[in-house]
Nucleic acid binder design. Structure first.
Lengths: 341, 341
DNA sequence: TTGTACGCGTTATCAC
DNA sequence: GTGATAACGCGTACAA
């Protein structure tokens, strides 16, 4: 015994009104008598009326849904971002449609098409590690749908974006290691096709150069996972070229490095100091606790969503695309505390 | 210069066909000539046609979207579940609409109404800690929309559900502590209005009773957060009533307890052994590494989604509601390794 | 095998 | 102030 939802027509029939009047009454149209408004409101809540957003979406060629394309939901940072997105969207009467690209280019393209087919009001994207083209993202713009990047942007596309000041934060983190007396500092970098990977590496190199320390290529490699970091440390150790600090482009990488260092009998931070990036939930409780950069994922998601909603509401003519920077905070914990600061 | 999406009509005009023929051709209707089908397919891909799912949704009174109501996205376990949901949905051509209740009853009710207004094809729910009624969930059933619980179910509602064997897993975890020689075992329980909270407590009591050990009320309290666990340990210590083991209803609680124990100068597991619940990402890398129960979040999300899709496709008449149990795996790590097993 | 007509629920436009 | 009408894009019974 399925109950079909109550529609405008039901209310209209009930009150001997036309559907259009009911529609107007419900959206508080000025040209409707207070009396009918009251009646309609009352009947609506009595019959438990809920507007059919699908029908409205069809009519207005736009829904109240925000599309999100995110590389991997299970990353703590990204789950924070999603939470921020959902929170703002909820408060503004929007819903969130989530797609994960699983770091695959193909899938990301698919996700875009899915969201476009759903007539979402706007799209938030953090591109996958694999993404090498951007025609799919241009399709979004072509349809006049607002697009905002968060965390991982595509430099070729000039659209609103919220990103971390990766370069500065990485520079700061490296400088911190220098201040601790480290001079042989390695960097386990993220994928260099991602801007965040490049920027963090640049920040690292910048800090070294500022300190007048030449960069050693053997110490600056792409190692983007727990396992790769582990292997890289073992590799460096075997070649008798162990650094006295490692700055990793994310926390998991840092933990992989730490595990390898421990297994090799090296003390942290005594022999090798470690700094990560992201402030994952485990950085605080790892042993020793991990120095890292807090990226403020929740705020990033919230801000990106607010920017998107602004675009959605402005409908076209608006300010030129802007880039908001969320400053990462270096959190100094035990993996890099050698001398008192 | 917005481009409006290509519609069936555009293709029809292009080929001098009627929209209905195009529609049929695209869904591989048997009564359409192969030739037209080919033509339509070709033009469709050439014009980059993508069906408007909103219109289809209105027509069929049902969309290809699955609604998810989840307490908090940032919990590692829940993010795993979402990932599993999204993966299966994606492979089956469905999209996922996410709502988080933030553990609030009001908000959960709101979420239900939002999803119903969106004509979702089915809904996956894990109820909030606050949820005390279930009229809102019954509304879902009333509209004939399939509903599947995951992790946290409402016992009063007989619907499909995927849950952990919390009682058995808790029992096993407690038994493990007994086998390690612990006899004064405390339990920091979850909220008792949630079935999972009650069941884990029951498992704990069961194990004690099986071992002929009377339960001590002072050792079995509701402590459901890092902070509360911390305080509870301090409290027990102050009253000179420290147990020799603590079984916690989740990992964060366990970590709070561990922190307090460390600060009190008690060794883990030497003085007090600890076991958590959930296998959060940090349990493996905490110090000492935390024994816990792996709840297989990803599999839970994937299975729940498959069950939901089955219901959606069967349309009404189907098997009676079933309950799938996902067995939690006790993972023994260092916080409970006292004697060789 | 293909076309016609209508409706899904809502809203915008025009008329009264 | 309110009602009638059309349209959003698609699917389907019915007709041809």
């Amino acid at each position: 015994m399925k109950t079909t939802p109550v529609t405008l027509k039901d209310i209209a029939r009930y009150l001997n009104l036309s559907p259009s009047s009911v529609s107007r009454a419900l959206k508080d149209h000025p040209e409707i008598s207070l009396k009918t408004k009251m009646q309609v409101m009352e009947v609506a809540s009595k019959l438990n009326y809920r507007p059919n957003v699908v029908a409205r979406g069809l009519k207005k060629r736009q829904t109240d849904t925000i599309g999100v394309i995110i590389p991997e939901i299970v990353h703590y940072f990204f789950s924070q971002v999603i939470s921020g997105i959902e929170e703002v969207a909820y408060n503004e009467g929007y819903t969130v449609m989530i797609c994960q690209s699983n770091e695959k280019y193909d899938r990301e393209i698919n996700n875009v098409h899915t969201l476009l087919a759903h007539q979402v009001a706007g799209i938030l994207v953090s591109v996958s590690k694999e993404t090498s083209g951007f025609e799919h993202l241009q399709e979004i713009k072509k349809e006049g749908i607002p697009l905002v990047f968060f965390d991982r942007a595509v430099p070729e596309l000039i659209v609103d974006q919220v990103i971390n000041n990766n370069r500065e934060a990485a520079c700061q983190a490296t400088r911190h290691l220098l201040e601790q007396g480290c001079v042989r500092i390695a960097h386990f970098a993220g994928p260099q096709n991602l801007m965040i990977g490049r920027e963090r590496k640049e920040g690292y190199l910048q800090a070294l150069s500022d300190a007048g320390i030449p960069a050693e290529t053997a110490w600056c490699t792409v190692a983007d996972s727990f396992e790769k970091a582990y292997e890289e440390v073992v590799h460096l150790h075997r070649s008798g070229n162990i650094p006295d600090a490692v700055f990793c482009s994310n926390d998991l990488t840092a933990l992989g490095a730490m595990k390898a260092l421990r297994n090799l009998g090296l003390r942290i931070p005594g022999d090798v100091a470690v700094v990560g990036f992201s402030n994952g939930i485990f950085s605080e409780i790892s042993d020793p606790s991990l120095s890292t950069v807090d990226q403020h994922g929740y705020e990033m998601g919230a801000l990106a969503t607010r920017m998107l909603l602004n675009r959605i509401r402005q409908e076209g003519e608006g300010a030129p695309p802007s880039t908001k920077i969320i400053a990462g905070d270096l959190i100094i914990r035990d993996t890099s505390r050698i001398r008192p600061v």
